[in-house]
Design a binder for these strands. Sequence first.
RNA 1: CGGGGUGUGGCGCAGUUGGCUAGCGCGCCGCGUUUGGGACGCGGAGGCCGGAGGUUCGAGUCCUCUCACCCCGACCA
Length: 418
Amino acid sequence: MRLSELFTKTTKTVPADETSKNAKLLIQAGFVHKEMAGVYAYLPLGLRVVENIKRIIREEMNALGSQEIIMTSLQRKELWEKTGRWDDAAVDVWFKSELKNGTAVGFGWSHEEPITNMMSNYISSYRDLPTSVYQFQTKLRNEVRAKSGIMRGREFVMKDLYAYSRNAEELQDFYDGVTEAYLKVFRRVGIGDSTYLTFASGGAFTQFSHEFQTVTEAGEDTIYIDEDKRIAVNQEVLNDDVLKQLGLQRDRLKEVKAAEVGNIFNFGSAKAEQLGVYFTDEDGSEKPLFLSSYGIGVTRLMGVVVELFADERGLVWPQSIAPAQVIIDRLGESRATIVAADELYAKLVEQGIETLYDDRDVRPGEKFADADLMGIPLRIVVSDKTVEAGKYEVKKRTATDVKMQSLDDILKDLVATE
RNA sequence: CGGGGUGUGGCGCAGUUGGCUAGCGCGCCGCGUUUGGGACGCGGAGGCCGGAGGUUCGAGUCCUCUCACCCCGACCA
């Protein structure tokens, strides 16, 4: 994409009503637009990041054998009444409305109920199990107070996966598989080192649920991490019994602030019993489905990445989710430089490398500042000097030094670090 | 939901004890000079001051109500 044609622009001044680092930088760099408190629109560059995160998650979920669907935003009241979750006293984040004829509907803040109910149409035998589906959906939650930019909104993109199993053992197998897959997702998006499998308060069926917590000051949770074992305990369940049970020693734990980027729940058969969803087992008996659900906050994850890596010059994206791999800064308007930059751009695009091309007639300082602000991993300068040298000037976003490289060297490096 | 704060061109801000045509910077448009870390000159366009009501000869400035936004706390199944 040529920056002269890119729909958004960067800005030097940031809206005064944002204090969180992620919102400030994402707005400044033109990645998102704030519509209202806790509600953000994703612009071309921001959308690319979201889509890159989704792509990684999608690959890992598909590898588990799960299949992608998309559920509805409008939901039926009756289903949620069956599980006691329609009541505002039980769930206080509901957005509710009604149809013209007065029928009550809710806007989806989660999808366990409708999806489990739907399963009664498609699962009737043990032969249909285990099975799982997932979706990327915009969740709507009427939070009393939105905060932390895109990390806690009233409208946000979430990947939720629902797995149905024949019994507790089968459920556990899948549960363990997803746990691994999640760790892999977080490694791939670049936050593996700071993300911990965390024991948190469980549902009705199990003592614990598992959260994936990324260590950052911008987080809302307090967790205690064991750096050697790579696990953590959420403050909400921390006590001597729990530590003993998990084989952890209090004096080896470190208290940190963290943001929950993923969570997994084991509902056992409780949800299916409430909703009346059964299958016929091998012996002919009717049994309730075992449900487990798995969430990753896609847009929150994006916010966490910003918080984790951004520096004083702007955003810093890991290569795996960056809106582009490369930004070409063309300096000067000489014929030779324009031709050289156009050629480089065409070649990179041809190689399938996402490339931003700063072809604007603005001063060098502005181009450098924008490239830094947008956080593109690799910057290539094309100028009269580089044309004369027959090489390109290359600089990593995180580096301070520049290298003179040929296109072949650049391509080699790009593939190697992918 | 409790406490605190803020609403003035697209963005950031100033506007004195009420006073006459509401300013400044960035950005935007035109012309020219510039071009390796956010250039400069000249000339322009753009706001009825969040909204409603009130006080007053006169309201961006005062009063009442209301809406929105931000922060802290509570909440987050």
